[in-house]
Design a protein around this nucleic acid. Structure first.
Lengths: 132, 132
DNA sequence: TATGCACCTTGTAGCAACTACAAGGTCAAG
DNA sequence: CTTGACCTTGTAGTTGCTACAAGGTGCATA
């Protein structure tokens, strides 16, 4: 299949697919006589894998590792497990950070009953006009 | 004060302060005879404001807006309120996304009891080796 | 006086992970 | 024969910094 079809099939832009090829994430496709990329079902499977891993928040570097690992059926899957654990820990850290942030923003919003910026608690709690 | 002192006072790298100046986020400082930047307390206040807003997840564009708004004490603070609301909504959206992600990762990890990658459920649920 | 060291200056390039654009080639339909 | 959808390559832009290089400044010490 050509790049457009692969793009539609995976919800990826063609430019992104070419980018993955440049980055070595996706193996280069065969070319037709007119130099169009010609993808196989294997490419489709790999690209789906990559996209899914990216959706799950794995970095490109981690995706590279996952791809390398997934090619070695014999090896213990500890390494895969560890990558997933790492990723989970990082996601949980981000959630905690964002929750703190949400609370602060919520508090700011609740505390402001002014109607002029001069008395606005939001601007105030950001550190302005308390100094002036 | 010189850039290093301002940097220490605000927990910002000097390179970042120069970057803010280039971007018009922080007004240019006076210069000493030897061309060193010489910052005032006003700069300190503005930079603190900027850093705090950035910590709260506001984008540079939003910080620009907040700075512009905070200079107009007379205006109604509806606009500030709206920016904060927007930011809160976005943070909540991110938290929801990350929570879904955490659940998926957790499920993947719990479901894998294999010890070889060939049977690894994590690789499997990412879409590999079910196709092979 | 020299010299070492911390500090400052500018300009440039790199990071992640794409995305957009320009200028052109290919191919099937009308 | 031309229109339009598709493809090619190369290059540059996005966000918010951060790092590095090559050089100037200022002050304390040997």
């Amino acid at each position: 299949m050509r790049i457009g079809e692969l793009a539609r099939a995976t919800g990826t832009k063609a430019a992104t697919i070419r980018y993955y090829e440049r980055e070595g994430i996706l193996p280069a496709a065969d070319r037709t006589e007119s130099n169009y990329r010609d993808y196989s079902d294997e490419h489709l499977a790999t690209l789906s894998f990559v996209r899914r891993a990216r959706e799950l928040g794995f970095s490109m570097a981690q995706v590279r590792e996952l791809l390398a690992l997934s090619d070695h059926d014999e090896k213990p899957c500890q390494d895969v497990d560890q990558l997933a654990q790492q990723q989970l820990a990082e996601v949980e850290r981000k959630i905690a950070d964002l929750s703190a942030l949400r609370d602060e923003l919520g508090q700011m919003l609740r505390s402001c009953q002014a109607d002029k910026i001069g008395e606005c608690q939001i601007i105030g709690s950001l550190g302005r006009h308390s100094v002036v």
